[in-house]
Simulated assay, not measured.
Amino acid sequence: MPRVSRDGVSIYYERDEGDGTPVVLVQGLGYGRWMWRWQREALAGEYGVIAPDNRGTGRSDAGLPPLVPRLPRKLRAPLSGKLAGYSIEGLAADLEAVLDDAGVFDAHLVGASLGGMIAQRYALEYSRAKTLTLLCTSHGGPDALPVPEETREHIFDVPKGASERETLRHRMRPAFSERFTNRNPHLMDRIIEWRLERDASDPAREAQAAAVLNFDVGNRLDRIRVPTLVCHGTNDRVVPVENGELLAEKIPDARLELVEGGSHCFFIEHADRVTDELRSFLDEHE
């Protein structure tokens, strides 16, 4: 499988061949390529898909200073936030390196959460984006609604005495609706296994979180000149739905689609609805 090096860091990506303009699926904070499995299966062949691993995730290198991963979390987290963290600018440059290596000149960019931030910055800095689809994300900065404090504590909490699987399950709860997790216990078990296998390590996840905290393109969105689909769940407990509404207001050629009752991971819980909206949007601009 292909790799490209940028800034001395190896970035891994996968490519599914298809007939149309490639769809590039950009992951959320800490999440591996598994998160796109439903949309990827639906689009591959028709459009073709490029699925990179964000820096520090899956098979991509983290590129962190050697000392950082060895530090205890209490010392490591502040260091990641101030000195060793990633930036959205750098993650967008990684994406540009991937698309250049893949020989892609036009691409439909689809990003969720952190991936949506990367897609915004990419569209502002580079020229390969044909359309944008932004899921459960924000433009950052003081005008955006922050992650609720209760959710932030839950996501980064490490329950005392909990196993790795129990910790992941605990951290995931705000991203899914209780109804979905109760009705799909076997799928949630599989997601835990996928996360253990393919997600970012804790140090890389903290470095990605630093990129989110420092992101702000709120006053630049009027410069995005490509058709944009903004999708958001109305019950998102991680990135409040008002952030999707702000994006749709500030991006000139944007359309907002709200999924009633949708959680942060509404692209999994409502996979068919999200995939239908995405395919319809792509067909319109293909």
Rank of each mutant, 00 (worst) to 15 (best):
C231P: 04
E242I: 08
D199K: 05
D236F: 06
G218C: 12
A207C: 08
S201T: 15
N235T: 09
N214H: 14
R225M: 01
E193M: 04
D222Y: 14
L187H: 12
A210Y: 05
I224N: 05
I191C: 10
C231G: 14
N219L: 10
R195F: 10
P240N: 01
L221M: 05
I224W: 06
V226M: 04
Q208M: 10
R190Y: 04
V239M: 02
V226Y: 06
N214W: 00
A200V: 09
N219G: 13
G218S: 14
N235G: 07
L213F: 14
L213M: 14
L213H: 14
L221S: 05
D202G: 05
Q208V: 08
R205N: 09
P227I: 04
L187M: 11
R205W: 10
V239Q: 04
D222K: 15
L187N: 08
L229N: 08
L229H: 11
R225I: 00
D236M: 02
V212N: 09
D222Q: 15
D189L: 08
G233T: 02
R198F: 08
N219I: 01
V230A: 01
S201V: 06
N219W: 11
C231W: 06
A210W: 06
N235L: 08
N219K: 13
T234W: 03
T228Q: 12
D236E: 01
G218T: 11
R195E: 07
D202F: 10
R190S: 09
N235H: 12
V241T: 10
R225T: 04
V241K: 05
E206D: 11
T234A: 06
D199W: 03
R198G: 15
R220H: 12
E197R: 15
D202S: 07
E193T: 06
G233I: 02
I224K: 04
L187A: 11
A207T: 08
R220K: 13
V217I: 08
P240Y: 05
R205H: 10
P203I: 01
R237G: 04
V217T: 13
R223G: 00
H232C: 07
A200T: 09
E197W: 13
E193P: 09
P203E: 01
L187S: 05
F215Q: 11
A210H: 02
D216Y: 02
I192W: 06
L213R: 14
N219Y: 07
V238M: 03
D216E: 01
V226F: 06
S201K: 09
T234R: 03
I192P: 10
H186R: 11
W194D: 10
A210N: 00
A209P: 09
R198T: 14
A211P: 15
A210R: 01
V239G: 02
V230E: 01
P227F: 03
G233N: 00
I192N: 12
A207S: 04
R190E: 11
R195K: 13
F215A: 07
V217W: 09
R220M: 09
V238A: 01
V230Y: 02
R225V: 04
P203V: 03
S201W: 07
D216T: 00
F215E: 07
F215V: 11
D202E: 10
A207K: 03
T228A: 12
G233D: 06
I191P: 10
V217S: 13
I224E: 00
L229W: 06
R223V: 02
R237D: 01
R225L: 02
D236I: 01
P227C: 05
T234G: 09
A209V: 09
V238R: 07
R220C: 03
D189K: 11
